[in-house]
Write a protein that binds this DNA or RNA. Structure first.
Lengths: 173, 173
DNA sequence: CCCTTGTTTCTGTCGAGACTGAAATTACGC
DNA sequence: GCGTAATTTCAGTCTCGACAGAAACAAGGG
């Protein structure tokens, strides 16, 4: 793996995006590096390529593994650990979005259900406010259900649907 | 507007979500409050309800206005500013997602196009790496195009499409 | 059983950005 | 124009999380 200008630009940008998507910079940079690398990399190679502390790489890889974005592999006669990323872009995003659903959508859904239940027998809360809560619950609920189903659709079918774009409306009618 | 337990729970949760979605806690809390409020609120009412500094409210409201999530209104014989949020949940999320597209998807697209162009005439970068870059570009590009089109579809049609869920695949065949 | 090599845990430092409160500014009634 | 109330700007404080580096810990090899 070579840090060519294009690779560097990619990795740096991905790192920035990572910070906006709920992980830290290093985790995202490592994922980017492994995604781009033609061969699995060792932790100490990553240390050199990204100039970060060894311990940082160790922790970050652990996190990536726990999310299923990165796998460990080995070479014959070499006991060191090598790591590689998922390479299927669709699969990558499926995993990432699933994480976010778990961490954000589900808790929000729980909170909304709690609120909705609570205001049923609640004379304090304004009727309009109650409706607003119910509307939001309904929205998040249907988004969640929709995602649940769509995430099951195979990639090949999904790409076809996406290629349709707004033409999808014609089919629905 | 009354800070009932349900409202408080909602506002606090929304604030937390805000931090994960690229704005700060106060901005999100204010938006939540205004969304739930049956009537437009003044800045100093928000100060009392949320217990944050006046200046903080001022800045946050400005940000919400600039994104088009909050509007200023007035009362007859009262020169103070009142604020209210968009109340249509779909519209709300359309605006929020549009923000994120501008701030994240578009720059990423630009970066990927830059990288893809750069590696065309680049003997340093591994062929596999080049392919990975192109794959990612293709993915982000089609996602972007898809969103561009889908965001134009009226809410009523969208809800119908979402209600279909995975049944959508049958139509495509 | 010790030594080497690789990996993880832990503690302290640092920086970014949210938030406060005071000072400055604006708008308006009188 | 002057005084008052509302709003904004700004500089300083504080908190949280990322990260480095050292120390502890495993796992083989000889």
């Amino acid at each position: 793996m070579k840090m060519t200008p294009a690779v560097e630009k990619y990795v740096l940008h991905w790192g920035e995006m990572g910070t906006r998507w709920g992980t830290n910079r290093t985790v995202a940079q490592i994922q980017a590096l492994l995604y781009l690398s033609p061969k699995p990399l060792r932790a100490d190679e990553i240390v050199d390529l990204l100039s970060v502390a060894r311990s940082n790489v160790s922790t970050s890889i652990r996190e990536l593994q726990s999310h299923g974005l990165v796998r460990m592999t080995h070479m014959l006669g070499d006991r060191r650990d090598y790591f590689e990323s998922l390479h299927d872009v669709w699969e990558l995003f499926r995993v990432i979005i699933e994480q976010r659903k778990q961490k954000e959508l589900n808790p929000t859904l729980a909170m909304l259900k709690g609120c909705a239940a609570e205001v049923e027998s609640d004379t304090e809360t304004d009727a309009v406010t109650k409706d607003r809560i119910r509307n939001m619950l309904q929205f998040v609920e249907s988004t969640s259900n929709w995602y649940e189903q769509v995430s099951q659709i195979p990639t090949s079918t999904l790409t076809k649907i996406m290629a349709l774009g707004a033409k999808i409306t014609k089919l629905v009618k």
